[in-house]
């Protein structure tokens, strides 16, 4: 629905956004790929030399890389399990007729707006600290030894913190999806003789399936890049117990100044993220046509 005039104008209007994003994508991405084939250390400037796949070889054979992959997957899957299951249950609960629904909802959503460094530090110090933390007090008051969460179960603790941050997101989206369910559909199924359980299985669950998939995909994109929570709680430790891929690349490049090795890790991270992104984009694309 348009004319040559408006089409020409449209091209002009869209150009700045396209050029900027194209530059943002291509220039650093190209540089990362290029660096990943170089021997390039910031501490020894001017000694860059082509090394082919050596960086990949070292990175992929480094035990800490496989630790990082395992940690990344543990973190992503652990948080997904908690947030998605919790989110579905919480959304179903909040969708029931309750007093003060709006306020309860607001309270549940709140953690999403807390910046990652703040939530990580509050949990680390005020709750999980084995001496003064609230959990230590609770343990002591029932006669147990305080548990050093971040020392003894660092990954589980980080999963807990991150889940607390993202549970609201999952809940909010699933709740929105629930509320968009056509009540006439539910009433029709009731007229057709479906009880509450059957209504959930045949009407509600299929309706939520789509939203759940979206939640899983989007969360995965964000969870693959978890960084600040690790930085301020464990610094990736003890050892490499909480070093995920993002954090490993950070250590290698910005702490050890090994640009080449870090870049190879970056490329691996991009490939991983893209696998998820492809599925997500498909879902969004389908929605665009509708």
């Amino acid at each position: 629905m348009a004319t040559l005039h408006s089409r020409a104008a449209a091209r002009l209007m869209i150009t700045p956004a396209v050029v900027l994003l194209l530059g943002w994508m291509l220039i650093p991405l190209g540089m990362t790929v290029y660096f990943s084939f170089l021997r390039f250390n910031l501490l020894a400037p001017g000694t860059e030399s082509w090394t082919g796949l050596t960086n990949y070889y070292f990175f992929l054979t480094d035990p800490s890389f496989w630790d990082a992959i395992r940690n990344t997957l543990t973190l992503v899957i652990g948080v997904l399990l908690i947030t998605v299951t919790g989110g579905v249950l919480l959304a179903l609960l909040l969708d029931q007729p309750i007093w003060g629904q709006g306020v309860a909802r607001v309270l549940v959503i709140a953690p999403f707006f807390v910046m990652p460094t703040v939530s990580a530090l509050i949990w680390k110090n005020m709750f999980m600290n084995p001496v003064n933390g609230l959990f230590a007090f609770l343990a002591k008051s029932v006669g147990l030894q305080p548990f050093d969460f971040l020392g003894q179960a660092p990954m589980a603790s980080i999963i807990l913190i991150v889940s607390w941050q993202w549970l609201p997101f999952a809940t909010l989206i699933l709740l929105t999806a629930l509320q968009s369910l056509d009540t006439e559909q539910l009433e029709a199924s009731e007229m057709d003789g479906a009880g509450p359980l059957n209504r959930f299985i045949y009407i509600v669950a299929p309706h939520l399936a789509r939203a759940t998939t979206v939640v899983i995909l989007i969360l995965t994109i964000f969870l693959l890049s978890i960084f600040a929570e690790i930085l301020v709680t464990t610094n990736g430790g003890p050892g490499t117990a909480t070093t995920n891929l993002t954090y490993l690349v950070y250590t290698q490049s910005l702490l050890q100044f090994d640009v080449g090795g870090g870049s190879a890790g970056g490329v691996v991270a991009i490939i991983l993220a893209n696998i998820v992104a492809i599925f997500l984009m498909r879902m969004i694309g389908k929605n665009l046509d509708a």
């Binding site: 991405l29 891929l245 490329v267 991270a269 893209n274």
Partner: peptide, 17 residues
Amino acid sequence: MWMLSTKMLPPVGVVIP
């Protein structure tokens, strides 16, 4: 869709450059 896909780029992939 392409614009959105740039959002999927992990920051560590481009942080060094």
